[in-house]
Computed example of a mutant assay.
Amino acid sequence: MKKIGNSEFSDRRSTAADAKAALLRAYRAAQEAAEPNREAKQAERLAAAEAREARRAEREQAKRDERSRIEAETAEREAALAAAARAEADARATTDTNSTARDLRDEATRKAERDLRYANRKARRG
């Protein structure tokens, strides 16, 4: 399209200023129209943020609980292993003690039998 007429710099400048003022008025009108919704949206965002924070705190608490449960189970397992090791060591010590006593008793019996054989042999010779 062709422009009709001769536009001067001042005409262009005033037209640009009018357009800028119209945009500003439209922006302000849109802001005023959105004011009731803005507060509702802000409250909605705040509620969503609080709910998100509550869920995060709940997840962290669940993680802490799980971690403490695992630590407790590990401690129980270690205590059970230590008790089993102590029981095995006690049984081994008892077995060793019994074995030692049995060995001493058996050796004493063999010595007594040997001494009896020697005594019988001397008795037969003499």
Results as ranks from 00 to 15, higher is better:
residue 1 M to P: 10
residue 3 K to S: 13
residue 7 S to W: 15
residue 7 S to R: 14
residue 10 S to E: 11
residue 12 R to W: 06
residue 12 R to I: 07
residue 15 T to Y: 10
residue 17 A to Y: 06
residue 17 A to C: 09
residue 18 D to I: 05
residue 20 K to M: 06
residue 20 K to H: 09
residue 21 A to K: 12
residue 22 A to M: 03
residue 24 L to S: 11
residue 25 R to V: 04
residue 27 Y to E: 14
residue 27 Y to C: 12
residue 28 R to Q: 15
residue 30 A to N: 11
residue 30 A to S: 13
residue 33 A to W: 01
residue 35 E to H: 07
residue 35 E to G: 03
residue 36 P to Q: 03
residue 39 E to R: 10
residue 40 A to G: 03
residue 41 K to T: 08
residue 41 K to I: 02
residue 43 A to K: 11
residue 46 L to D: 12
residue 48 A to W: 05
residue 51 A to Q: 14
residue 51 A to C: 08
residue 52 R to N: 13
residue 53 E to W: 01
residue 53 E to N: 02
residue 54 A to H: 05
residue 55 R to V: 11
residue 56 R to F: 07
residue 58 E to P: 01
residue 61 Q to G: 08
residue 62 A to F: 04
residue 62 A to H: 10
residue 63 K to L: 13
residue 68 S to R: 14
residue 69 R to N: 09
residue 70 I to P: 00
residue 74 T to P: 00
residue 77 R to L: 10
residue 77 R to K: 14
residue 81 L to P: 00
residue 82 A to E: 02
residue 83 A to H: 04
residue 83 A to P: 03
residue 84 A to I: 06
residue 86 R to S: 08
residue 88 E to Y: 10
residue 88 E to L: 11
residue 89 A to N: 07
residue 90 D to H: 10
residue 91 A to K: 13
residue 97 T to M: 10
residue 99 S to D: 14
residue 100 T to F: 05
residue 100 T to I: 01
residue 103 D to V: 08
residue 104 L to F: 07
residue 104 L to C: 02
residue 105 R to T: 11
residue 105 R to G: 02
residue 105 R to K: 12
residue 108 A to T: 04
residue 108 A to H: 05
residue 108 A to R: 06
residue 112 A to Y: 01
residue 113 E to Q: 12
residue 113 E to F: 00
residue 114 R to H: 15
residue 116 L to I: 04
residue 117 R to W: 07
residue 119 A to P: 04
residue 120 N to E: 15
residue 121 R to L: 15
residue 122 K to P: 00
residue 122 K to H: 08
